[in-house]
Simulated scan of single mutants.
Amino acid sequence: MNIFEFKSYKDFLNSYCEQERGSLSRLAEAGECQKSYLSACLKGKGQLSLDQAYGMAEHLELSDFEQDYFFLLIEKEKAVTPKLRRRLEAKAKDMARESFRLKNQQKDSLIISEVSSDVGVYYATWLTTAIHTLTSIPRFQTAPMLAKRLNLTIETVTPVLNYLLKMQMIEKSGDKYRWNSANIHLADNSTWISVHHSNWRTRATENIQKHDKEATHYSAVQSFSEQDFEKLKRKIAGFITEFNKVSDPSDPEEAFCLNIDLFRV
Rank of each mutant, 00 (worst) to 15 (best):
F4A: 10
F6I: 13
S8K: 04
Y9M: 14
L13F: 08
L13C: 11
N14Q: 14
E18P: 11
E18Q: 15
E20V: 14
R21C: 04
G22D: 11
S25T: 15
S25I: 12
E29H: 14
S36R: 10
Y37Q: 05
G46C: 10
Q47A: 13
Q47R: 11
S49I: 03
D51C: 01
G55H: 10
M56N: 02
A57M: 09
L60T: 02
S63G: 04
S63Y: 07
E66R: 12
L72F: 06
I74W: 02
I74P: 09
E77Y: 01
V80M: 00
V80L: 01
T81S: 15
T81F: 00
T81Y: 00
P82W: 09
R87L: 00
L88A: 06
A90M: 06
D94V: 12
D94Q: 07
D94M: 07
R97L: 11
L102T: 11
L102A: 11
K103R: 05
N104P: 01
Q105R: 10
D108N: 13
S109N: 07
S116Q: 08
S116K: 05
G120T: 10
Y122V: 14
A130R: 09
I131T: 05
L134E: 06
P138F: 00
R139F: 02
T142G: 04
A143P: 00
M145H: 06
K148Y: 03
K148V: 04
R149N: 01
R149M: 05
L152T: 04
E155F: 06
T158V: 08
P159C: 03
L161W: 06
L161V: 11
L164P: 04
Q168Y: 02
I170H: 00
I170Q: 02
D175V: 03
W179Q: 01
W179R: 06
A182P: 00
I184G: 02
H185G: 13
D188E: 15
S190P: 00
T191V: 15
V195T: 15
S198G: 13
W200D: 04
R203G: 06
E206R: 04
Q209D: 04
K210L: 13
Y218A: 01
A220W: 04
A220M: 11
Q222M: 14
Q222T: 13
Q222P: 12
S225P: 01
S225D: 07
F229G: 14
L232F: 15
R234G: 05
K235R: 13
A237H: 11
E242A: 14
E242G: 09
F243S: 13
V246D: 00
S250N: 05
E253G: 07
L262W: 08
L262K: 02
F263L: 12
F263P: 10
R264Y: 07
R264M: 05
